[in-house]
Design a protein around this nucleic acid. Structure first.
Lengths: 339, 339
DNA sequence: TCGGGTGGGGAAAACGTTATCAGCTGTCGT
DNA sequence: ACGACAGCTGATAACGTTTTCCCCACCCGA
C-alpha cells in the first residue's frame, strides 16, 4: 500500500539531491552564474527537467528583493482607453520579463481607494502605475504611500504632483478639434464634457482656450457620463436648439450616441450639425457618417508609463515625464455650416 | 551629520520593538487571532500606523503557503469579449480579497505559449484562468503543468479536456441566430466565421446544425479575422452575390464592417440582405440600422470562472463546469427576404 | 619549493513571515 | 488544596530561495 503522501511541489533541495550537488549550486545554474562546471550544470538541468521543477516565486523575491510584478490601479478596465493603455503596459512589461496585475478602484471614495491600495500592496509588487483618467485614479495616486515606485498615466498636459507621469496632451487635442471646427466657419463650438468632478479636464481646457483665442462666444458646458446613452440624451435636446452648428464631444461613445439621436430626429450630420469625437476607436471609422475625431495613442501611453516606472524602480526618482500630442483625424462628420 | 542610511521598509520586528511586544504577537494581532490582550493589540495597531508598516507579501505567502494572486492567460486583452471577461474575473477576485495578474499569449506557437507560462508561474500564483477564445488560449491550457489549479473560460458547449470550465454555449447561440433567420423566411443563411484554426467553432457548429435540421443548403464558409475590416472585405464580394439574403457573422465587428461595405454599394440592410452579429457590444445598438445580434454575458463568464477556480484551489479537483445560454437580441438589421 | 591568484563548490546565514511549542498566569471544578 | 484548563505570550523553528563566506585544488611565476 503506497502511503497517500500528498503531492508536494519539488523544491531546490529535491533537484540538488537528484543531481547530487549542493543546493547553492543548483541556484547558481538556474541563475546563470559562471563558476560552475559544465557537467554539473548538465546534471542539474536534467534533474530540473525530469522533476518539473519551478522556482518558488515568493521565496525567490523574498530573499533576493527583486520583484517582477508591476501593479496597475485603474478606475475601469473595459472602456476603450483603459483597455488599450493596459494592453500597452502588459506588452512592455512582458518584453521586460515582468508580469502586470490589475486592481480596479471602484470610485474616488476614500473607502474604495484604500481597499484597492491594500489589495494591491499585499502582493510583492515592484511598483505601481496609476491610470489617471478619472477621479478614482486621481485619488488613488494621491493616497499611495511614499517611497513606493509610482508613476501616473493619463491625459493631463502638465503635472501638479511630483510623481513622474506619461501623458497624452488632451489640452492640445481639445484645442485642435475646436480650432478645426472654427476654421470650417462655425461661429462657435458647443461641448459635451465627461463627468470629471474636478474643475479641470484637459479636453475642456483646450476647447475653452481655442474659443478664447478666436474671440468666439463660450457656450454652457453640457455634462454627460462617458457612455453613448448620455450622448443620445443630449442629442434629443440639441436637435431642438437652432443655434448649435458644431459639437465637440469628450469621447467617441458620446459622439456616436449624439449622432444617432440627431439623425433619428431628421437633423443631418454634418449638414446641419458637425460632430467631432475623441479617442478614435476602431469602429468610428465605419460609422455613417464616419466620425471626425482625435486619435489617442493609448497603447504607446501604456508603454511609456511602464518605461518610466522601470526608471523609477532603478533608482531614478525623478525620471522625466513625457507628453505626446494626439492627432486630429478628419472624416465625414464635420463640414462647413450651412449658408 | 545624519548618516544617509538608505530607507528600509519597516518589518514586523520594527513594529514589535516599537510596541514593546514580541514578533509573533504582532503577527497574531495582524491576523486577527484571539488570545491577545486588548491593550497589547492597541499598542501594536498604533505602532503599525505610525511606522506605516505593510506586510511583506512574498514572505507571508512563502511561509503560510496561502496565495492571493490568480493569473489570467489570454490571447488578447483589448477586444470586447476578452476585456469584459477580464473585468468579470477582476471584480470577483477583488471581492474575494484576491488580485489578478494578466499575461498575453502572443500566438498559439509553442514558443509563445511557453514564454507566457514561464512568466506567469514565476509569480506566486494560486491558480490560473485560461481564456480559451482562440488557438493561443487552447494551446496554453494544454501546456500548463499538472497539479496546478487551472480552469478555462470560453465558448465551448462541451469539454474535451478534464479541466473544469466556465462556458458560454456558443453552439446554441449560433443555432438560435440561424434559426431566427430561417424563421423569417430565408432559404438559407451564409456565415462569416472567425479565424479559428481548429476544426470546430461552437458558433459555426450551431449554424450548421440549424441548417441541417431545417433541410436548408449549407453554403461555403467564409473565413475572416475578427476585425471589422475583414467584414468589410467580405461585404465587397457579397454585394455582388445575388443568392445571399442573410449572413450570420462570427462577431459584431465583422458584422459592422460587412454592413458598411454593403450600404456603400447600395445594398440595403435588411431590405436586400439581413445581417446578424455576435457579442452585443454596446455600440451596435446605435448603428443604423441597429444590429440584431446574440448577447454574451462575458462579465458573468469571468465571474463564474473565478468561482470555479476558487473551488479547485480549495481542493475540489473536479468542480462542476457551468454553461450559460446567450440570448438573441432582435433589432433592425434583420427582416424577411424580399418578395 | 613556495606564494598567490583563480575556477569551482559546499556550509551556513539570511530574508520576513507564520506555525509550533512551551511556559506562565489565573480560575474553576472536585 | 490540587490538578486541569483556558487565556495569553515569547522562543524557536520552519518555509525555499539567494548570498556570503570559506575551503579546496590547481596553475602559474618567482
Amino acid at each position: 500500500m503506497a502511503s497517500p503522501k500528498p503531492y508536494r511541489a519539488p523544491v531546490l533541495a529535491d533537484v540538488a539531491k537528484a543531481a547530487e550537488v549542493s543546493v547553492p549550486t543548483v541556484s547558481r545554474v538556474l541563475n546563470g552564474s559562471k563558476y560552475v562546471a559544465p557537467d554539473l550544470a548538465q546534471r542539474v538541468n536534467e534533474a530540473v527537467q525530469t522533476l518539473g521543477y519551478r522556482p518558488n516565486g515568493a521565496a525567490r523575491s523574498m530573499r533576493s528583493g527583486r520583484r517582477t510584478l508591476v501593479s496597475v490601479l485603474a478606475g475601469a478596465t473595459a472602456n476603450y482607453g483603459y483597455a488599450r493603455t493596459l494592453q500597452g503596459v502588459e506588452t512592455a512589461a512582458r518584453r521586460a520579463g515582468m508580469t502586470v496585475s490589475i486592481t480596479v478602484v471602484e470610485s474616488g471614495d476614500a473607502e474604495h481607494v484604500h481597499a484597492a491600495i491594500d489589495l494591491t500592496l499585499a502582493q510583492p509588487t515592484a511598483g505601481v502605475i496609476v491610470l489617471e483618467f478619472d477621479r478614482a485614479g486621481i485619488n488613488a495616486a494621491k493616497a499611495l504611500p511614499e517611497r513606493l515606485p509610482v508613476v501616473v498615466a493619463g491625459g493631463g498636459s502638465r503635472r501638479t504632483g511630483h510623481v513622474p507621469a506619461a501623458l497624452i496632451d488632451e489640452r492640445t487635442a481639445g484645442r485642435q478639434a475646436t480650432e478645426y471646427l472654427l476654421h470650417l466657419g462655425h461661429r462657435t463650438v458647443h461641448h459635451i464634457a465627461g463627468p470629471t468632478e474636478g474643475k479641470h479636464s484637459g479636453r475642456t481646457d483646450g476647447w475653452r482656450a481655442a474659443l478664447g483665442a478666436a474671440g468666439a462666444p463660450v457656450p454652457q458646458i453640457m455634462r454627460a457620463d462617458w457612455d453613448a446613452s448620455a450622448g443620445y440624451r443630449w442629442g434629443e435636446r440639441i436637435a431642438g436648439m437652432s443655434d448649435v452648428t458644431a459639437v465637440f464631444c469628450a469621447n467617441d461613445d458620446i459622439a456616436l450616441g449624439l449622432m444617432r439621436a440627431l439623425t433619428d430626429r431628421g437633423v443631418d450630420v454634418p449638414g446641419d450639425i458637425s460632430v467631432i469625437g475623441f479617442d478614435d476607436q476602431p469602429l468610428v471609422a465605419l460609422w455613417r457618417p464616419s466620425l471626425t475625431t482625435v486619435d489617442q495613442d493609448f497603447e504607446d501611453l501604456g508603454a511609456r508609463a511602464f518605461g518610466l516606472l522601470s526608471q523609477v524602480i532603478d533608482g531614478d526618482v525623478d525620471a522625466a515625464s513625457s507628453v505626446t500630442a494626439p492627432q486630429l483625424v478628419v472624416r465625414e462628420s464635420t463640414a462647413a455650416p450651412r449658408g
